[in-house]
Simulated scan of single mutants.
Amino acid sequence: MLSYQHLYHAGNLADVQKHALLCFMLDYLVQKDKPLSYIETHAGRGLYRLDAEEAVKTGEAAKGIMAVEDAFAPDPPYRLRLAATRARWGDAAYPGSPLLAALTLREMDTIHLAELHPQEHRLLSEVVHIWDAHVHKKDGFATALALTPPTPRRGLMLIDPPYEVKTDYDVIPGHIANIARKWNVGIIALWYPLLTNAAHIGMLAELSARFPDALRHEVRFPAAKADHKMIGSGMFIINAPWGTGDEAKRLSRLFA
């Protein structure tokens, strides 16, 4: 199923949580003068316009990044990447996770992005080509398994599926276990929605049993509209970099 397009939801509060933690972890990794690999399994188009009809229609960005950005300190990695995006593409531009990674990583680093949706893949390729990113029009989990362990071996993988298929919750723990078995030193970060039907509970229970030392961070927020089912979001991070837990606690205060 390829119906999901993140443009309707770009810049929402779930993005704020996911992107703030991603930027913190990537910024930590680039402090060391050693190359790294960044892999993303469900990349999207990479760059969004918050004044687009689709984004304005849902109003999620207005209740998300537009409402809370000033609560961040002026110079954390997330805000710096937002500023860099706007300087290059205009005030209404908003970076997806592939662009946040590309803006953070160095020439010595390697970027692999998987996106199966034809339109999103084309737009993503246009955005990230200047960074020599490897853009794969393939299934994200198959790509992740094929690429691991990557070269360089040090690095981070973001798994951010749209959860269009109900069985995603059932199969994701197995996918992550297979990836982690091949890449035991990799940072593996899974984003998941908190829905009114609590669909994530079984998945998180299995993941927590398999990876008891992983960092689990969840935030709650009001549904964007009365009929929306998402009331929060979470990140499950295996091999989280030092300080990520403290950063997650600071981030939680924005949602209190």
Rank of each mutant, 00 (worst) to 15 (best):
M1K: 14
L2F: 09
Y8M: 06
H9G: 03
G11Q: 14
A14G: 06
D15C: 11
K18E: 08
L22R: 05
F24H: 15
M25I: 15
V30Q: 11
V30F: 05
V30S: 03
Y38W: 03
I39H: 01
I39Y: 02
E40F: 00
Y48L: 14
E53H: 10
E53D: 12
K57A: 11
G59Q: 09
G59V: 05
A62N: 04
K63H: 08
G64R: 14
I65C: 11
I65V: 14
E69M: 09
D70V: 11
A71C: 09
R79D: 03
R81S: 09
L82E: 06
A83L: 11
A84I: 02
T85I: 11
W89Y: 15
G90C: 12
D91F: 10
A93F: 12
P95R: 13
P98H: 03
T104N: 05
M108H: 03
D109G: 03
L113T: 04
H117E: 02
H117L: 06
L124N: 03
L124G: 05
S125M: 01
H129Y: 09
I130R: 00
W131C: 05
H134W: 06
V135S: 10
K137Q: 15
K137M: 10
K138Y: 01
K138C: 02
A142D: 09
A144N: 04
L145C: 07
A146Q: 06
T148I: 09
P149S: 07
P150I: 08
P152I: 09
R153K: 13
R154E: 01
L156S: 11
M157E: 02
D160M: 00
P161I: 07
P161Q: 10
K166V: 12
Y169R: 13
D170G: 05
H175P: 02
I179F: 09
W183L: 03
I187A: 04
A189Y: 00
L190M: 11
Y192W: 15
I201P: 01
A205P: 00
E206Y: 07
S208H: 04
A209M: 10
R210S: 04
D213H: 03
D213C: 00
A214K: 07
R216L: 15
V219P: 13
P222L: 07
A223L: 04
A224E: 07
K225P: 02
D227Y: 02
D227Q: 14
M230N: 11
M235A: 04
I238T: 03
I238G: 01
T244S: 14
D246L: 06
E247C: 15
E247Q: 15
L254A: 11
F255W: 09
